[in-house]
Design a protein around this nucleic acid. Structure first.
Length: 890
DNA sequence: TATCCGACATTCT
DNA sequence: AGAATGTCGGATA
């Protein structure tokens, strides 16, 4: 049951009106309550005393109210002894016009009118074991700091045009990191207040020419212990000794000028105490790495997204243990011991933001433990913190990231010590810096993870987290392809279409095979869609791992000025039987406890639907449209067509109407040049066509793909011709997921269908009806791939696997009739495009009716009655699929 | 032959 | 400028 279905159920109750006797049962029926429970609640399980009341322990207490007294009734209910005994979460009362509800867990009221009962759906989600989930937001300070740094970086580069190269990138990154440390140190008490920006202001000239030498001096002095400093000016000597290697290398300093100096001094005025080290670390990283130059922070993971990984993976469980330990110093000590040993390992750590956030969360919890212990025992029985930076491990491909990550971890440590001092009155000294996290520079898919984060003796909790790079097979470099080959080739033949990120999942499975702990990554949603589901998840399941929690598709977002265009998921995996707590499935703002999370990230079993070369149920062959690969030269807009025909009217025999997804859905008019092999010479005699044929040749000859190059010699025709010259059922390859049905159509024998669509050439119309059904729609939406979250139709995965019952000739006749009814319903709206007709908000009544009639009739053919909702549809289809494939295998 | 994908691409509002 | 929604050709089988 999903949220939309809950909302629809409540709407139905509201429309039907208040029925004193049935209402409470109708109401709980909307929240996925099993039938057996409802039956029991009609008997002894109902703990309420009065007539027409319902009291379901831990869940719901309902009473009808006198006219206009819903709120008072709920208040009175809350005072009853029954509420204490049976602890219902929700109290609800209505007079049929108004209703009041109260959530005892959240101390939250809802007042509404009965006719709009459905507006309250998310208030009651707890009844369906779904919890509202609130993400952590980012602070303004981070955004400002990142902006200033980018500005400073640009100004410095503008002043040092010879620094735009790899050799200087490293130097500049180190330089920026040092400046950052200074800006931070002077705001946080590591230095004297404002020491850095004041010195810069007072001891360098306004033109900025001597900023470089000045910085060189202070960097050197910060690497020199007090006893080795000798005779130096007092204003330089005020800078303290900073250990930890940050200022160890003496490298070239860029030229400054008036503008960069001013930007740097202005940057000093920001309050750097407030910033999150994860954000600016990533910013510098992205700005400085040459291969990421166009990237500008596109790929750093926002704090809310990091929390989406860390929270369900282990923070939630720690939190639970903490609340269970509230009154016992012993239990608190135990929790403290557990927490101080936890290791966090990010094998794609970048500048370390996952590690930083994890460190901070552990420190925060530790302080709460100390606080509670202090309250219980009245003593301060500890020395500083037991959470050590050395428990944080990382691997990063980019050369300099490890330094940035280490710096950021120091800053995080400093910030937490500061908080510690605010609460407990004292903190350890900030300088000199101590050892930081274990960050290794290397290729995470080749490095032995056990060498970076060694297996711990007594099986210490080690959690693997991160946001590894995503790259589909088309975009992987040779090295990256080899990375995947080394990992997957020993297991399988079919891995080459896997996304690069899949490598991290497999490595995490190997690393944790003998351990009891989980891993979770942010990944592209492709790994849980279409063909990759089979390629990746079968290997995970085969090694006795399962999905322990997941976030369904969400659009990538962070504070960078330009965001990466990708839709992500977060998938947590864990060895079977080692999963702590509940499996939780997160969907846009809500969290739901579930029995199992399938590889499509739905509440279902671990079924994988593989590709099929032909229909499992004997449906007619569905093939592809025709693929041009022509750089646009064989395709004509109406204007281009007109201008050709004006000059050479005889070209008309070589021009056909051309249909892909868009042309069909939006009614766009396009044409293509279509020349039979025996008419090539004739066509070439038309100059306009000849020019285009030549252009196709040149384009194909220059292609990287051998198949395309081979077709350069046949430049008068499409690279792949799959079928034409017969009437066909037409299915767009990509279409919006917001429409209530797949938009399907018929094409005539004169039309050319392109590779943005599938075609069943010469098919019987009952197939049109099958594809137009809700059943097919939910199947395709689930098992096919997607373009982000669009529907990406597939013959091998969606059509050939689609389970249907035996259909008699009479059944097919009936379906054919219904297909024509849909076509006729569309034709009653001339001038409207398919997009208009299938607009979820504006779908015409008659068309909707025709579709619903088809669904009703077809579903009756499946199970004798229509299905209740999409969840039931899907369950049934998967059941049929399992049976079908078993039969085939056996 | 055949087909799946896009740390996207382009259009719409 | 954010929301809506599908191109096109390389890579792979």
């Amino acid at each position: 049951m999903n949220i939309a279905e809950i909302e629809m159920g409540l709407k139905a109750i509201a429309e039907q009106g208040f029925d004193k006797n049935e209402f409470p049962f109708q109401f709980i029926g909307c929240f996925d309550t099993p039938k057996a429970t409802t039956t029991k609640l009609k008997g002894k399980m109902n703990k309420a005393k009065g007539e027409n009341e319902l009291l379901w322990a831990k869940k719901l207490y309902f009473k009808p109210s006198p006219q206009g007294a819903a709120a008072q009734t709920v208040d009175a209910m809350n005072e009853e002894g029954l509420v204490n005994t049976h602890a219902p979460r929700f109290l609800l009362s209505t007079d049929g016009e108004e209703f009041t509800a109260y959530d005892r867990n959240k101390d939250d009221h809802f007042h509404g009118t009965f006719s709009k009962l459905n507006d309250s759906f998310d208030f009651f989600l707890g009844l369906a074991n779904i919890e509202r989930y609130e993400a952590v937001e980012e602070t303004i300070a981070d955004i400002r700091a990142a902006g200033r740094l980018a500005k400073l970086y640009d100004a410095i580069l503008a002043n040092n045009s010879d620094w735009y190269n790899d050799e200087h990138a490293h130097t500049l990154n180190l330089f920026m990191t040092r400046l950052l440390f200074c800006l931070f140190a002077e705001d946080t008490g590591i230095f004297e207040q404002d020491l850095f920006s004041k010195s810069l202001n007072d001891y360098t000239d306004i033109e900025g020419r001597d900023v470089g030498p000045f910085l060189e001096q202070i960097f050197e002095i910060m690497d020199t212990p007090p006893n080795e400093r000798g005779d130096i000016p007092a204003h330089i000597n005020r800078f303290p000794f900073v250990n930890g290697g940050l200022f160890k290398d003496h490298v070239k300093i860029p030229k400054f000028g008036k503008l960069p100096r001013r930007i740097l001094i202005e940057a000093g005025r920001l309050n750097w105490r407030e910033i999150n080290p994860d954000i600016f670390g990533s910013m510098i990283q992205a700005v400085v790495e040459p291969e990421m130059r166009g990237d500008l922070g596109m790929h750093y993971t926002s704090v809310p997204n990091i929390m989406k990984v860390l929270h369900p993976l282990f923070l939630l469980d720690l939190e639970k243990q903490f609340s269970d330990s509230q009154d016992s110093p012993n239990k608190l000590e135990k929790l403290h011991q557990r927490l101080s040993k936890i290791r966090v390992f990010d094998p794609a750590c970048g500048s370390g933001n996952f590690l930083i956030i994890a460190y901070r969360e552990l420190r925060k919890l530790e302080m709460r433990i100390y606080k509670r212990l202090q309250e219980l025992t009245g003593e301060l029985g500890w020395k500083w913190s037991e959470v050590k930076l050395t428990n944080f491990y990382g691997i990063e491909y980019a050369d300099f990231a490890s330094e940035t990550a280490k710096l950021s971890l120091w800053i995080a440590e400093y910030q937490m010590n500061k908080q510690f001092a605010d609460i407990f009155g004292d903190a350890p000294p900030a300088l000199p810096l101590k050892e930081s996290g274990n960050i290794k520079h290397g290729n995470a898919l080749r490095v032995n993870w056990e060498e970076v984060c060694p297996p711990a003796k007594d099986d210490i909790e080690t959690y693997i987290v991160g946001n590894p790079p995503y790259l589909g097979s088309t975009f992987q470099s040779k090295e990256q392809k080899e990375d995947l080959e080394l990992l997957f080739k020993p297991l399988t033949k079919s891995y080459k279409n896997l996304d690069y990120v899949a490598g991290w999942y497999l490595k995490a499975v190997y690393y944790n095979q003998k351990r009891r702990y989980g891993a979770a990554f942010v990944a592209t949603n492709s790994i849980c869609q279409g063909e990759q589901v089979n390629m990746l998840w079968q290997h995970v399941y085969a090694r006795q791992f399962e999905i322990s929690f997941a976030h369904q598709s969400f659009k990538w977002k962070n504070n960078a000025s330009k965001n990466a265009g990708v839709t992500c998921v977060i998938v947590g995996i864990c060895p079977k039987n080692a999963i702590i707590g509940d499996k939780i499935l997160f969907t846009a703002g809500v969290a739901k406890k579930v029995k199992n999370i399938g590889p499509y990230l739905l509440e279902m079993s671990d079924v994988i639907v593989g590709k099929e070369g032909s229909s499992l149920t004997g449906l007619p062959k569905m093939s592809w449209g025709n693929k041009a690969t022509d750089n646009g030269n064989l395709i004509l807009s109406p204007d281009e067509r007109a201008s050709i025909l004006e000059k050479s009217p005889e070209a008309v025999e070589f021009i056909k109407r051309y249909y892909g997804s868009q042309e069909f859905i939006k009614g766009i008019e396009r044409y293509c040049i279509w020349i039979a092999d025996n008419k090539v010479e004739e066509a070439k005699s038309i100059p306009e066509l000849n020019k285009r044929i030549q252009a196709v040749h040149d384009f194909r000859a220059a292609s990287k793909a051998p198949q395309t190059r081979d077709y350069a010699v046949h430049s008068h025709r499409f690279r792949q011709i799959q079928g034409y010259g017969v009437d066909a059922v037409f299915v767009p390859r990509i279409s919006s997921e917001k429409r209530p049905y797949m938009p399907v159509g018929f094409m005539s024998e004169d039309d050319i269908i392109n590779d943005q669509a599938y075609a069943i050439y010469g098919a019987e119309p009952f197939v049109f009806a099958l594809i137009s059904s809700k059943l097919h729609y939910v199947w395709v939406k689930t098992v096919c791939g997607q373009m982000e979250t669009r529907i990406r139709y597939s013959n091998t995965m969606g059509y050939n696997t689609f389970p249907i019952p035996f259909l008699s000739d009479d059944d097919k006749k009936i379906l054919e009739e219904l297909a024509w009814e849909i076509i006729e319903a569309r034709e009653e709206h001339p001038g409207k495009t398919i997009a208009d007709l299938y607009d979820p908000k504006k779908m015409p009544e008659n068309l909707l009716k025709a579709h619903k009639k088809l669904d009703m009739v077809l579903e009756t053919m499946y199970v004798g009655e229509p299905f209740k909702n999409d969840t039931v549809r899907l369950e049934h289809l998967f059941k049929m699929y399992a049976k079908m494939t078993k039969k085939k295998a056996g």
